[in-house]
Design a protein around this nucleic acid. Sequence first.
DNA 1: AATAATAACATTAACGTTAATGTTATTATT
DNA 2: AATAATAACATTAACGTTAATGTTATTATT
Lengths: 346, 346
Amino acid sequence: MSKYKKVKLKHIAEQAGVSINTVSHALNDKSDISEKTKERIRKIAKNLGYIPDAVAGSMRKGSTKTIGVIIPDIMDPLMSIWVKDIETKLRQNGYNIFVINTDENYALEEKALVLALSKKVDGIILCPCQKDDKDIIFLKKKRINFVLLGRRFNHIKTDYVVADDLKGGYLATKHLLDQGRKRILLLNGHSYISSAQERYRGYTEALKEKKQKIDNSLVYEIANTSGNSMQAIKKILGKKIKFDGIFAFSDLMAWEVIAFLQEIGFKIPEDVEVVGYDNIQSRFYFPYSLTTVNYPKRTAAHKAVDILLKKIANPDSQQYFQEIIDTNLFIRKQQNNYDPDYLEEH
Amino acid sequence: MSKYKKVKLKHIAEQAGVSINTVSHALNDKSDISEKTKERIRKIAKNLGYIPDAVAGSMRKGSTKTIGVIIPDIMDPLMSIWVKDIETKLRQNGYNIFVINTDENYALEEKALVLALSKKVDGIILCPCQKDDKDIIFLKKKRINFVLLGRRFNHIKTDYVVADDLKGGYLATKHLLDQGRKRILLLNGHSYISSAQERYRGYTEALKEKKQKIDNSLVYEIANTSGNSMQAIKKILGKKIKFDGIFAFSDLMAWEVIAFLQEIGFKIPEDVEVVGYDNIQSRFYFPYSLTTVNYPKRTAAHKAVDILLKKIANPDSQQYFQEIIDTNLFIRKQQNNYDPDYLEEH
DNA sequence: AATAATAACATTAACGTTAATGTTATTATT
DNA sequence: AATAATAACATTAACGTTAATGTTATTATT
């Protein structure tokens, strides 16, 4: 890409009067080169502005020190928190990340995986869209090192790190019931997503416990992207379906419905009480108090990294690592003002 | 990374009874292989689950078809919009992206650049932290293909795409003045960031036009991360400095100060009117109306890609491409309710 | 003093692919 | 009918590095 002549090991070797291998070993601090020579070679390398060719190195070494991170949506704050934490943790371990978006699109997910494999990543952290599972089966068959994050498959044994969404769904619903709410709208993710499935189970369990019937006209499945929750609420209101509580799939959805309901005249939380999910703590995003299901997101990302590194270090192990991160309810007084607790959280 | 035996061109060649080169040419759809042979080889490749080794291919071809995207903060919505648009546009052109965060940290920026160059990216899109410029000079000297996005250097000639921040700063300040605001707080980014510099210039120009003196106790420079604008406001209030308008460096800052000021009893916009920057349109983030400086962010990202692709296609050209994207003021009635216009925008 | 061990290098081969040539049979050209 | 051109492959070399050996002088060991 550059007209500037590329500096290679060869050039350093010529200047130092040693072999290319000696330069390589010196720069990689191998033990079979004298400290004097190493120092001399390092200086020449620096002088010439040598930048190692990782592509060539990777080919020879058979490892890229790169992990593929494949996620549905980098613009979702939850995902960007994950990505940042994964990047930081992996960097500490000498790895880089290669992030690919799938837009919750299975075809793109397949392409993303092939791209990552083609780029010879040493492992993959994947939050699957779950519209299909062929690609996961393919990964297993190929014995690729991968860890699922945030979502898992019931019928495929893999490594994964997920939140305890069953408990999360139960706690959120129970909280609304305890507050005296009678008709709780579940604004859920699509049912092929495991976390949505489990939250639904938690929702039904809490209702059953209070001897309430499950009314499926109160259960909606939508994609977690901007505008959808508002559209859903519009539809529900259009059908004259009554509700006095909402359990939303994400803080983002919760936020959107609160804003929309307020706009059209509802009092929040008096008329409708809302519980979110994920406890996205960035002050930027949620200046208003929102009761939400909380879990250590950073821990989740770090555990996924730990598991992946373990698998890479021990490729012959048949062991599966499956982590279910505990969830709890983060109760905030729901009102239109700033949450002073945010600094203390986490 | 896998115990599963890797499928190489060699294996396809053996099964097809042709040479490795023929397989390579067939799969790359070169013209010197008969359609019949191509079809046969494609089938065998598919059967064996062949995934091309991009590392080996890149080494031989001298091109990775990957662009390094180096940005200060993937969690900033502006940046994640950019990244997504860049990814989409580059994908259409057969390129992938390699995203690296710098956390507005110059040392990390240098490392990110070396990493990208080491990984042999075909070009770089960079939003520099601007705490130093040595790395930019290095890129120029090495004749690396790169385009700056969002920020530029006054004293270094490079390709860039920036917003018209001078105009943006002027429009925002003028708007506040026109609304009768007398003491306008500039909550700016750090002055080594070009966009902050230019907005400051716009701010002063608008003040001068109205014959107002520039009061530097009203100008604050902070990093665009969560919590900082609140801290700044606290300090300012502590110093008993009065203000009735705020021009913030980002919608995020604007948002944070609005929430904080409301919390401590200010009426917005009656007591303090706030103007933001970037017009982050995601319904998720800003359910409340905010007047803000707007510009086509998508266009900016796309232009950066276009410029980079032009430079890659034409490496011998000495031409510089410098785009200043026009800014305008997006006026919204500032009130605590939902902005119904958001769907129509853009 | 003879042999073994080690330090500090050099040489060779290989990673998997593709560009640059080379070869041969077939077809086109005059 | 002789030659040129072309189609469809094969062979060879190269991308830049590092692992696996090889070599030689020096030092340690008995």
